[in-house]
Design a protein around this nucleic acid. Structure first.
Lengths: 234, 234
DNA sequence: CGATTGTAAAGTGTCAACAATTTAATGTCG
DNA sequence: CGACATTAAATTGTTGACACTTTACAATCG
């Protein structure tokens, strides 16, 4: 039984704990919008909701703070983090760099297996874009980017990228695409896939970086038109 | 008195708390080597050391886990995170991408004020490198990289980069440079500064990316020669 | 009536005690 | 003597109580 070297990996021994569970649950409450952004979290209330005491809740909130999803103000409470547009812009920049690096890595390591998958995703997105079906396009778009990052084969990169994307979900207005932006965006996807297929790492980086940067600019343009004239000061 | 708009910014009202304080203190205990890597942290002992109860200590440890400095195994305890070489390699890759992006940003935004400072740092490093004075070179090298990242003007980037560098300090063998690597490394610095001075964003990115990648390769080469022949399997 | 001060309520911060689990030590059987 | 079951110690997990701070409210004074 115990002769085999490392076959079973007995990591079943309680790989989770109450604070981790609470962390995940509170996180989805935030990302699903069940806790409103900018709002305050009441520890007592939250603990009562889950039927636990405040200790584990506070530990979970500490983790969420380090993940950038909430803000802790001493003696004041925990607040769902709200991003202003300048922070979002900064995040998009870093995301562009990370995504570009991912595409670069994938281009230099791919053995063509991933390319077929990417082309399939691309076809689906093309179809959804043609139909202006945003609800169908959005998850495909997400999966496309995530697939490239994942297949790049760098776990640290994947974690950083996903953490950033998670934080970006705090900016609610950001995910909308209108009109022909779907088609424009997807043409950029096509260029990315081609560069990866050609094993052209430099072009894969550049097209991927530019793709996210352009998404940032689309967001900015949209944010300008939406923004109120001026926030008056006292 | 209350007429001025945002002059005083009374953020003095307890901008810190016990868990934050403990977090910083434990962090420096780890990075200074006062807590040995891979070793286990005893909550009772640690709490007694600081003269507090275990609650705040546990909260601090949750934050440190999210920062990637410790690992929490449910019911088993908290362990100072130990990095294997493959993780370090991944981190270097991401660091290269982030640092490259920083140099790119700085090159495209600099108004020449930063370049003088960079050239001054470069001169100091050249001197230290010529004297093979690693102890003097190391902090200069650190400051040089950090300055570029900081002056890039992207707070998210700065935070991500510094977090990564902090984690890399868990890999103790990594910081050594021998022989003429100091001079080689500094020649790369010179190329980076020149690209930034020229406002050549693309070259700034590439030289900076390559610089970190070469650091990774130097590390890997060193690690190969140091590594034990083979870790035998059962 | 508006600004200020004082007071009560609500919420966060910290602790010490208890429960549950893991680890180490001990004893027992084959 | 070694493997296994049993027990004791150490350590983590969770809780409820209490102290402290902030916030909201009410009363008072100019």
């Amino acid at each position: 039984m115990s002769s085999s070297s490392a076959a079973h990996d007995v990591s079943f021994l309680r790989l989770t704990s109450l604070p981790m569970l609470l962390e995940r649950e509170i996180e989805s409450m935030i990302l699903d919008g069940r806790l409103s952004i900018g709002g305050r979290i009441n520890e007592n209330q939250l603990a009562a909701t889950f039927g636990v005491s405040r200790g584990p809740v506070r530990e979970a909130l500490r983790s969420l703070e380090a993940l950038g999803l909430v803000e802790l103000l001493p003696n004041r409470g925990v607040f769902i983090r709200s991003l202003d547009i300048s922070q979002v812009v900064e995040m998009y920049g870093v995301r562009a760099a990370l995504f570009g690096y991912a595409a670069q890595l994938l281009a230099s390591r791919t053995e063509a297996g991933e390319v077929d998958r990417l082309r399939a995703m691309l076809d689906e997105m093309t179809e959804a874009a043609r139909a202006h079906d945003f609800d169908r396009y959005y998850p495909l778009n997400f999966a496309f980017h995530d697939f490239i990052v994942e297949q790049a084969g760098n776990g640290v990169l994947t974690a950083q990228y996903r953490g950033l994307v998670k934080q970006l979900r705090l900016y609610r207005a950001g995910n909308l695409m209108t009109g022909n932006t779907l088609e424009l965006s997807n043409e950029e996807h096509a260029r990315i896939v081609e560069a990866i297929a050609r094993r052209d790492a430099a072009t894969a980086y550049q097209t991927s970086f530019d793709h996210v940067e352009r998404g940032k600019e689309r967001l900015l343009a949209r944010s300008m038109s939406t923004a109120r004239p001026e926030e008056r000061r006292a």
